[in-house]
């Protein structure tokens, strides 16, 4: 009898722990993606130098507010960021798809003076949408960047529509662009 009881208690405890653990695994991590305070508000304007290869089209410096009227997808990246490396080819292909609907803009940040590495990054993935240099990291601070990559979907009026932390997928870009353009 005692044996049965000990057996029952031990296995009930293990089963209980297993049950809540499976629940936890199924649910995944509690959401740590901090919502941006800027959602629905006009985003900070900035003017940043443009990487040389894009200067013909966008000029030596890029001012965000000059591009009102078209949605802007603002992607922050750095050469040391593994997820950015993984994300880059997808961004380029999405850009080819949605060129007419939105402007993609890359911002290299958190690595001052890494122009050579940045150029290498842009060439490696033949990125054809413009990339800017956030030399003193001010723009990433203004936008409250926590980790890289982070991407901001800015609507035609310059208001923040959606912020994405971590690598994007083309499906998310498509869905958010559709929502934004409706």
């Amino acid at each position: 009898m005692k044996k049965l009881l000990a057996f029952a208690i031990a296995f009930a405890a293990i089963a209980g722990i297993a049950a809540i653990s499976f629940f936890g695994l199924d649910r995944g991590s509690p959401n740590r993606d901090i919502k941006s305070n800027m959602l629905g508000k006009t985003v900070f304007d900035f003017e940043l130098p443009v990487y040389e290869r894009y200067q013909n089209e966008y000029g030596p410096s890029f001012k965000l507010s000059d591009y009102r009227g078209k949605p802007v997808i603002l992607n922050f990246w750095a050469t040391w960021c593994i997820s950015c490396l993984q994300e880059a080819p997808m961004l380029e292909s999405a850009w080819q798809h949605y060129k007419d609907k939105a402007l993609f803009v890359g911002v290299q940040t958190l690595e001052k003076g890494k122009d050579a590495a940045g150029n290498d990054f842009l060439s490696r993935f033949s990125l054809s949408f413009p990339s800017l240099k956030d030399l003193d990291n001010n723009v990433s601070i203004d936008y409250g960047i926590f980790g890289l990559p982070e991407t901001f979907f800015i609507d035609t009026e310059g208001k923040l529509f959606y912020k994405h932390a971590g690598p994007l997928t083309e499906a998310i870009i498509a869905a958010k662009l559709d929502e934004m353009l409706q």
Partner: peptide, 10 residues
């Protein structure tokens, strides 16, 4: 092993 090694890490 990364096929393309970054030049620096975070």
């Amino acid at each position: 092993t990364l096929l393309k090694a970054p030049l620096d890490g975070p």
